[in-house]
Design a protein around this nucleic acid. Structure first.
Length: 284
DNA sequence: ATCATTTGACCGTC
DNA sequence: GACGGTCAAATGAT
């Protein structure tokens, strides 16, 4: 199995990574089992079906805990160091020094959406706005509200499209949510959100995999293709696509299905760049 | 008082 | 050097 994973962490210990890979494999098998069980037990709520559901839930939560735990601990360290430095130097001095001191999120997975609605199920906080060259409308920058307390690195950029008549927005999502949003809305199964989004055994990306863009200029190699298969499989796990509920991991896409409904007109998962790995040093 | 948004400065990439 | 992305003080809203 390819060793690519969308969580932004190269420092994850190899053991932990292997554990997660094994869990991903396990969940994949459980998802296949669920399909078989569904076929053989057509009536809803059979005990076998419930059992498989529990297995899938268990896999999801375990994977989430493993990755979440690591990231939170890392980000808590970040916050602490920030606080301590501010405390020692005084706010004014630090703010001048740190201003604009960042590393760009290059290589993070991104996907774009054309929507008439800026809203989605996540809590975003605007952190900037820029006028873009040759664009009539400014681009707004949002980051996940839980960046500070949970270290969620998801960001999105929203820009109204050029066409004056339409109220459509071009929304670019960068990175997946690693937060566990405390809002009740996010905790309920996505297929309980009043949307005709059938419980599925495959990722929401599956039907879109043909539009999966490899942002690299290079031609895709067979290994790239296999990586993409792994990507969809992983997304099946982290996006909660396998069982229709979301534990808080990387749920942007499923949210766009469940919450924005048909306003999601054009979903383009893109940017699975070479190696599909985040460089943690780019997230300082 | 607290939280969110605006806005100009700063930095990385091309 | 231009442009885009991010930071954080200032400001506004509740």
């Amino acid at each position: 199995m390819a060793t690519l994973h969308p969580w932004p962490d190269r420092t994850l210990s190899s053991n932990k990574r292997r554990v997660i890979q094994e869990l991903v494999e396990g969940k994949k098998c459980a998802a296949e089992l669920q399909i078989i069980v569904d076929q053989e037990h057509s009536q809803q709520g059979s005990s076998a079906e419930e059992l498989v559901q529990k297995i899938l839930t268990s896999f999801d939560q375990t994977i989430s805990m493993l990755t979440f735990d690591h990231e939170v601990s890392q980000n808590q360290d970040d916050c602490r160091s920030q606080e301590s430095s501010e405390g020692s130097k005084g706010p004014a001095a630090v703010s001048k020094e740190r201003r604009g001191c960042y590393k760009r999120k290059r290589g993070a997975e991104t996907w774009t959406v054309l929507s008439d609605n800026m809203e989605d199920c996540h809590a975003w906080r605007k952190y900037g706005q820029k006028n873009i060259l040759n664009s009539k409308h400014p681009r707004s920058y949002f980051r996940c509200k839980h960046k500070c307390n949970q270290g969620c690195r998801a960001v999105k950029q929203v820009q109204r499209i050029e066409d004056d008549d339409s109220q459509m927005y071009h929304i670019t999502y960068i990175g997946t949510h690693t937060c566990r949003d405390s809002s009740p809305h996010d905790m309920v199964p996505s297929n309980n959100s009043g949307v005709a989004f059938k419980k599925h055994h495959s990722s929401p990306f599956d039907g879109l995999s043909s539009t999966l863009k490899h942002e690299s200029e290079e031609e895709m190699t067979p290994s790239d293709v296999s990586e993409l298969n792994s990507v969809t499989m992983w997304e099946d796990v982290v996006l909660g696509g396998g069982c229709g509920f979301e534990s808080g991991y990387g749920d942007v896409v499923s949210d766009m299905y469940s919450c924005n409904e048909v306003c999601c007109l054009n979903l383009e998962p893109v940017g699975l760049e070479n190696g599909f790995q985040f460089d943690d040093t780019e997230f300082v």
